[in-house]
Design a protein around this nucleic acid. Structure first.
Lengths: 237, 237
DNA sequence: ACGACGACTTCGGTATACCGCTAGCTTGCG
DNA sequence: CGCAAGCTAGCGGTATACCGAAGTCGTCGT
């Protein structure tokens, strides 16, 4: 409902996706400054669509905006990780529950698709394709819940999760596949209780490891206001 | 973390709050067109900050943006109400749980404040102040959870709830006060299970009535694309 | 009289230009 | 030599202007 992700017709969507990918893929590190004019020039667009994209990234928590000072890539603290998993566990459970209640053949076939793609990718040893398929499965479960508001909330969370996994590279994808398959079974069996429980446990599974990983690259004394300073940048970063 | 609601220093925040209030207070009805130039002129600002405010309202679900055609106040369908309550029940439970786990005297005193304000307002027969105090209590519970991400998610939901209650004017505020008091007791007793259950039940309480009310003003055949047409507006709406 | 086609109007999308705040350098004084 | 006040320029905030897409209305032909 919110993100017309496909067909980035407007320059704003283009800027949004370009910057989001740079952040999620780690090209732009947490804490890195984002100077509107520079990025706009780099993308070959003007500042207006870029600004609008920045606001959206800010609302989704990927970027910090310091009024009258500028923007920077948001840090990812252990507290953020904890907060993220807290909410994720609850909402993934909700999504799985509703999906199990509403499951019809059309929904189920859409859920099977990423499961199959994941198997394929695993067979090919395609690490990247596997991660994508697993992420798609989660998205499909949320879609299957039929709750548009839930979709609009989970979408930014999924982005953050993707970011987190990219930064930490945690969890065995094979194990995830097995858990996804079990969740699918519960949904197909129209068992909301079981589906909800499985989804929650699945979401919780990566928590501890992610938290530990997050301890490392996070700087507890990070301060966005001081981070936006130092305007004269060195000749070569 | 997201909304620096106080001190709308920038014109963007000014525009955001102005438009949000008009929508929530029902001055701008669901389905009403929003023409950028007109509103910008009315607020005495240019289109850029207004546009950025519009995007935000769009991301929060108060406004629909039809590419290359324009904006309009989002409709509020029964499905939206259902979706909203689904998520609210889960997240209010989470918030109450965490609040109960973390409750210290500082937190508790902040929670008592709106309870007291609500009593005052009720004694004075101040309907409006009572609603505000009740809403504040919910916000404080979320704050007390210590989950910044949860705050940023609940804030737009709270706005939508305010909108919904303004459109429907449902539930007995007195009953709500009693339920809030019980929830406070559970949090003060550091009983996460009980606090969570109470919060969930409290959130669920208004659901049926709101749903029925929503049936009335909603037009099931509403289509945003056709709604943005008719550019020549009547001389006097 | 009715339908199709075309020009005009409106309004969102984007670029360009200006303003003013603020950080950090610089300079001068203690 | 250290610190403080003023100066400078980078960069976010906002306004203005232009462009192109999309809808509406008028007109012409049948």
């Amino acid at each position: 409902m919110n993100q017309p992700a496909p067909a980035p017709g407007s320059l704003r969507d283009l800027a949004y996706e370009a910057m989001r990918e740079r952040i999620v893929e780690g090209v732009w590190h947490p804490g890195r400054r984002i100077v509107e004019r520079d990025v706009a020039a780099e993308l070959g667009i003007s500042r207006i669509p870029l600004r609008e994209a920045l606001r959206r990234l800010h609302d989704e928590g990927l970027v910090i905006l310091v009024p009258r000072q500028g923007a920077l890539v948001s840090p990812f603290t252990p507290a953020d990780v904890s907060d993220l998993f807290d909410i994720r566990e609850h909402l993934e459970e909700l999504a799985a529950r509703r999906a199990a209640e509403r499951a019809d053949e059309g929904v189920l076939s859409r859920l099977r698709e990423p499961l199959r793609a994941a198997e394929d990718a695993r067979a090919r040893g395609d690490e990247r394709g596997l991660a994508l398929a697993n992420a798609t499965f989660h998205t499909e479960v949320v879609d299957a819940s039929g709750n548009a508001l839930l979709q609009s909330i989970m979408d930014p969370l999924a982005t953050k999760l993707r970011w987190l996994f990219r930064l930490t590279a945690v969890r065995d994808p094979g194990e995830q596949c097995a858990e996804h398959a079990r969740l699918y079974q519960a949904i197909a069996a129209r068992d909301p209780e079981k589906a909800g429980a499985l989804a929650r446990a699945h979401a919780a599974a990566g928590r501890e490891l992610s938290m530990r990983m997050a301890q490392e690259w996070s700087d507890p004394h990070f301060n966005p206001v001081t981070a936006t300073r130092t305007r004269r940048r060195g000749p070569h970063p």
